[in-house]
Design a binder for these strands. Structure first.
Lengths: 299, 299
DNA sequence: GGTTGGTCATAAGCCGTGCTTATCATTGCA
DNA sequence: TGCAATGATAAGCACGGCTTATGACCAACC
């Protein structure tokens, strides 16, 4: 027993509209017998007569009328499917689930989201802010489409594109303004405030100071860069923050900002997504938007 | 270029649900390659990727999600089509357009409509009350489904079923009560009030009196049996009415009812519909309802 | 690091469906 | 009664879609 076919519904609709087998068949660009057979098949399938055939006329039965109403709705919905596909082809559509690490999100996201909204009308942007390792897991699980993180991540199933390099700056109490900038050895002797375990930014900072995680030091852990800067402001120690955070975080704090002499600490900000993602092309566009947003932010 | 198929949508839905080609294929009772091919075809048709295939998982893309929502709605609607057909198979459904002649309608319809409504839940009954000739035309045009008329109609494209025979009774002024019932000759000498031209009941009465329409007589034409009875009540003449009208029409009139000796005038009430009507089976049921209603009315 | 199991894609072959043209049956009309 | 119109039926053919068999790829696991 064969099933209902869209073709049958299309033929039916044509016959309902024309009330004439020959003309309906023409409209469907098939021969009259082909249409007759499909209609017959449809009626047998439903075990109901849809048309009343008299010598001169083909008329819908009462049930046929009801049927036709529903069929027209269905055919319209089906046509909308292909329209939907055509409209969204090659463009970002629907929903973009973006992961961002905490040391990037507050600074970069406002600009990125603004630009994406301007570029992709109607795009729904979900943001997930958490540590890199969790973002990687969520990418693997398909819970997010892409993530903005510090590279490298080096997951074999991920593809990563570098967007821009970004220096770290030293935040000291306001009264240190103008004092010589410490080098790495000097820095190691200072009370360095860092984010808690798990933040890549923490590892990057430690790595610059040549402090290995294997060799624990007494460090005050703050939950965010903002907290760290505030703590510096009241004289508890010094900290590093990425360039993009300077504007936001030092505006209302009595701290001084100092750039390191080379070698300068830095990180590479980039985007990652599953190699298998069919959004690859669109994500490259998104990456470009992020890059520009980042450039504008540091300028 | 081939078109979208319901089959493809069904396979797509299965794959979306199972996230696994093999299991989805099982669910569809086909082989895995068959499903793969149809999905591929669908994606090529839409020129969009619906699924993200990685080694371990098959996941919907964002567009696929949106697509799946719509597809599920469509498939539900399509399934409803066959449900609708099954539910209405062999039963009267939707709308019944019934024509009735004026000398039957007021007496028979209340009972008929009540019984039909009780029997066919949700049936929408349209009634058209007019002369037989117009009803026949409306049947031909497909504007009504069946008609209750006096037989015979003898139209070759119509099928007719007799429901019951019904005598005509004589309506005389109240003071004639008990007087001998006139025979046909006597009747011809009386002032006989009849409906206007076109009513079959008029022809039947004339025919009983052996007055042929070719031989015009001065007759007062009333627009309805009720009018005629009222006129009889004020002494203008006598009239004939069908048995089923007696209860309603003589209740509030000072007239006397007399039954003829044989040969008694009578008519055959029946139902007619197009021979081509697919409602034939159901209309036979309706006819049975009408017959019972008529029997109850005359009892 | 080869091997194995799992998974989806591809290939080859076959069967059935649906199309075409040709023809028939019916009916309304001249 | 014969003709024109219309839908149904028949025969034949071609293509689409299914099956089984096999390939490609990747992950996981000794």
């Amino acid at each position: 027993m064969t099933n209902l076919t869209l073709k049958q519904l299309r033929y039916f609709e044509a016959l309902a509209r024309h009330g004439h087998f020959g003309r309906a068949a023409d409209a469907c660009a098939i021969s009259q017998p082909a249409l007759s057979m499909q209609i017959k098949e449809l009626e047998e399938l439903l075990d109901t007569e849809l048309f009343e055939r008299s010598a001169r006329q083909v008329r819908l039965t009462a049930f046929g009328e009801e049927f036709a109403l529903r069929v027209r709705t269905i055919l319209r919905s089906v046509d909308e499917l292909t329209d939907l596909a055509r409209a969204s082809r090659g463009r970002l559509v629907g929903r973009l689930r973006l992961g961002v690490i905490p040391t990037i999100a507050p600074y970069l996201l406002p600009a990125v989201i603004g630009n994406l909204n301007r570029l992709y009308d109607g795009l729904e942007i979900h943001v997930r802010e958490t540590l890199t390792s969790k973002l990687v897991q969520e990418l693997a699980d398909g819970r997010i489409d892409a993530a903005i993180v510090a590279l490298p991540v080096s997951e074999p199933f991920l593809c990563e594109v570098a967007l821009f390099a970004e220096d770290f700056v030293l935040i000291r109490p306001g009264e240190d303004e103008g004092k010589p900038v410490p080098d790495r050895e000097t820095l190691r002797g200072m009370r360095l405030l860092l984010l808690e375990e798990g933040h890549c930014f923490r590892e990057q900072a430690l790595s610059y100071c040549d402090i290995h995680s294997a060799r624990p030091r007494e460090l005050l852990d703050g939950s965010s860069l903002a907290t760290l800067v505030q703590m510096v402001g009241v004289g508890i120690g010094v900290t590093l923050i990425p360039e993009m955070a300077v504007g936001v975080e030092t505006r209302c704090a009595s701290v001084s900002v100092a750039r390191f002499n080379s070698p300068r600490p830095s990180r590479t900000v980039g985007m990652i997504w599953r190699k298998t993602s069919p959004l690859a092309k669109q994500l490259l566009q998104v990456a470009e938007v992020v890059r520009q947003s980042g450039d504008a932010l540091r300028a």
